[in-house]
Lab assay of single mutants.
Amino acid sequence: MTFKLIINGKTLKGETTTEAVDAATAEKVLKQYANDNGIDGEWTYDDATKTFTVTE
């Protein structure tokens, strides 16, 4: 399955996707991606669209 991350950061905005077997696995990968890029904020997840959003 494809999961999307929408980034609403102070210095970085955009989106990325990852392939994962489930939402929990995708969340780990996407949170690591955000952490690697210095993004720390509030996370939400929409199961209907398989989209995570992080807002700083």
Rank of each mutant, 00 (worst) to 15 (best):
A20T: 05
N37E: 08
T25A: 13
Q32H: 07
E56Q: 10
T55G: 04
Y33N: 02
T53C: 06
G41V: 02
Y45D: 00
A20E: 05
W43N: 00
D46A: 04
Q32W: 05
I39V: 11
A26R: 00
K50Y: 08
D40Y: 15
T49Q: 07
Y45Q: 01
G38F: 07
N37W: 14
A20H: 03
V21W: 12
D46E: 08
G38I: 03
T25R: 07
A23Y: 13
T11A: 09
T55Y: 08
M1C: 11
L30F: 15
T55V: 09
E27Q: 10
K28L: 11
T11G: 09
T49F: 05
T17P: 02
I7F: 13
G41K: 01
N37H: 15
L5C: 05
T11F: 14
E42L: 14
A26D: 00
K31M: 10
G41P: 01
A48E: 13
Y33V: 05
K13Y: 11
I39N: 02
G41S: 01
E19C: 12
A26S: 02
V21F: 14
E19D: 10
T51I: 07
T25W: 07
T44F: 10
T55C: 06
A20W: 02
K31P: 00
T16P: 03
T49H: 06
Y33S: 02
V29A: 10
E56M: 11
Y45W: 04
A48L: 12
K50D: 03
D22Y: 03
G38R: 06
K31R: 15
T51E: 05
L5Y: 02
L5S: 01
L30E: 00
G38Q: 07
N8F: 12
E27K: 09
A26W: 01
Q32T: 07
E42T: 13
T25E: 11
E27V: 07
L12M: 14
D46V: 05
Y33G: 02
A23S: 10
A23D: 04
M1Q: 13
D40Q: 15
T18A: 11
T53D: 02
T11V: 12
A34I: 05
T25I: 08
N35V: 15
N37T: 07
V29M: 12
M1K: 12
E15W: 14
G41I: 02
A23L: 09
N35T: 14
A48K: 11
D46L: 04
A34N: 03
G14Q: 12
E56D: 09
G41H: 01
G41A: 02
N35Q: 15
I7T: 04
G9H: 09
G14I: 15
D46N: 10
N35F: 15
A20S: 07
V29F: 15
T18W: 09
T17I: 08
V21G: 10
D22R: 03
G14L: 15
K10H: 12
N37P: 01
L30C: 04
E56I: 13
T16Y: 15
T25C: 08
K31I: 06
D40R: 14
Q32N: 07
T2E: 11
A20P: 02
V21C: 12
A34W: 03
I39T: 03
F52K: 00
N35R: 15
F52L: 02
L5V: 04
G14S: 13
T16H: 15
A26H: 00
K13R: 12
E56W: 10
T18P: 01
T44D: 09
L30T: 01
D47H: 11
D40V: 15
K31T: 05
E19V: 15
L12D: 07
L5T: 01
V21Y: 12
D40G: 08
E56S: 08
K4Y: 14
E27S: 07
I6D: 03
G38M: 07
A23C: 11
G9A: 09
E42F: 11
L30Y: 04
V54D: 00
E56N: 05
N8H: 10
K4P: 02
A20K: 03
D36C: 07
V21H: 12
K31F: 06
V54Y: 02
E27P: 00
N35I: 15
N37L: 15
L30K: 00
M1H: 14
A48H: 13
G41R: 00
G38A: 07
A34C: 13
K50G: 05
I6E: 04
T55K: 06
G41L: 02
W43R: 00
E19S: 11
D22V: 03
E19F: 15
T53E: 05
F52W: 08
K13Q: 12
A24L: 11
T55P: 01
K10E: 09
E19R: 13
Q32I: 08
Y33P: 00
G9V: 13
G41C: 02
F52Q: 00
V29G: 04
T2R: 13
T44Q: 11
A20Y: 02
K50W: 06
A48M: 11
E56L: 12
T44E: 09
K50L: 12
V21M: 14
A24Q: 12
V21I: 14
Y33M: 05
T17H: 09
T17M: 11
T17G: 04
Q32R: 12
A26M: 02
V29S: 08
T11W: 13
N37R: 15
E56P: 10
K13V: 10
K13F: 10
N37F: 14
N8I: 14
E42Q: 11
V29K: 10
T55A: 06
T11M: 11
G9R: 05
E42I: 15
V21A: 14
D47N: 10
F3Y: 14
T2N: 08
T44Y: 09
F3A: 02
V54F: 03
K50P: 00
A34D: 00
D22F: 03
W43L: 03
K31C: 05
D46T: 05
A48W: 09
I6G: 02
K31Q: 07
A24N: 09
A48S: 10
D46Y: 04
V54T: 03
E15C: 14
D36S: 10
L12R: 10
I6V: 13
L30V: 03
A24D: 10
T17F: 14
E15Q: 11
K28G: 07
T51L: 04
L30A: 02
D40T: 14
D22E: 04
T16L: 15
A20I: 03
I7Q: 02
N37A: 13
T51A: 05
A34L: 06
K10T: 11
K13I: 11
A23F: 14
D22K: 03
Y33C: 05
D36F: 07
A48Q: 11
F3Q: 01
T2V: 13
L30R: 00
V54K: 00
K4S: 06
Y45G: 00
E15D: 06
A48Y: 10
A48C: 07
E15Y: 14
L12A: 09
E56G: 05
T17Y: 15
Q32C: 06
V54S: 02
K28Q: 13
G38V: 03
V29R: 11
E56R: 04
I7A: 04
N37I: 15
L30G: 00
K28N: 07
K28Y: 09
A26N: 00
K13A: 08
W43Q: 00
T16F: 15
G9F: 13
Y33I: 09
D46G: 02
V21T: 13
K13W: 10
K10F: 13
T16V: 15
A23E: 07
I7C: 05
D36Q: 11
W43E: 00
K4R: 14
D46C: 08
Y45E: 00
T16M: 15
T18E: 03
T25S: 11
N37V: 14
D46P: 00
E19M: 14
F3G: 02
K4M: 09
A23T: 08
N37Q: 13
T25N: 06
N8Q: 10
Y45I: 01
K10L: 15
A26G: 03
T49S: 09
A20V: 04
E19K: 13
T49L: 08
I7L: 07
E15L: 10
A24C: 13
A48N: 12
D47V: 11
F52N: 00
I7G: 02
E19Y: 15
K4I: 13
